[in-house]
Amino acid sequence: MTRLKLADLADEKPVRLTLEISARLHRDLTAYALAVNGGDPKGAPTVERLIPPMLERFITTDRGFSKARKSIQTG
């Protein structure tokens, strides 16, 4: 099975956010949700549940952002 970057979908208190995404991105996120669940649509996470951990993963692995954040905090 393919190892995906997103594995842990921890439950946390949510903050409501409304955004619009393209239909293509929605299809890709739906396909990703199926992949996270091993291809089984039953029990696959919703797109809404996928987006927050994907963004968190993106931010924590962005070296440029990490450097900028450190320079802002120490500056």
Rank of each mutant, 00 (worst) to 15 (best):
M1G: 12
M1Y: 03
T2A: 12
T2N: 12
T2P: 15
L4P: 00
K5H: 09
A7H: 11
A7L: 07
A7E: 13
A7P: 00
D8F: 08
D8N: 13
L9G: 00
A10S: 10
A10C: 03
A10V: 08
D11G: 06
D11I: 13
D11L: 15
E12G: 10
E12I: 11
K13T: 14
K13V: 14
K13M: 11
P14V: 04
V15M: 07
R16F: 09
L17M: 11
L17W: 08
T18R: 11
T18G: 09
E20M: 10
I21K: 01
S22Y: 02
S22L: 03
S22T: 14
A23K: 14
A23G: 14
R24T: 15
L25M: 12
L25W: 04
H26W: 04
R27W: 05
R27L: 11
D28I: 02
L29P: 06
A31G: 06
A31I: 03
L34R: 11
L34G: 06
A35F: 00
A35D: 09
A35H: 03
G39F: 00
G39Y: 00
G39W: 00
P41N: 06
P41F: 08
P41E: 04
K42V: 15
G43I: 05
G43K: 02
A44G: 04
P45I: 06
T46Q: 11
V47N: 07
V47S: 08
V47Y: 05
E48P: 01
R49K: 09
R49A: 13
P52T: 03
P52R: 02
P52Y: 04
P52V: 04
P53D: 01
P53K: 00
P53Y: 02
M54W: 02
M54H: 01
L55D: 02
R57G: 02
F58N: 03
I59S: 07
I59M: 12
T60A: 09
T60Q: 12
T60C: 06
T61Q: 12
T61A: 09
D62Y: 05
D62W: 04
R63I: 11
R63F: 04
R63D: 12
G64S: 05
G64Q: 03
F65L: 14
F65V: 07
S66M: 10
K67C: 04
A68C: 01
A68F: 10
K70A: 15
K70L: 13
S71G: 01
S71F: 07
S71Q: 14
Q73E: 15
T74S: 15
T74R: 14
T74F: 10
G75N: 07
G75M: 05
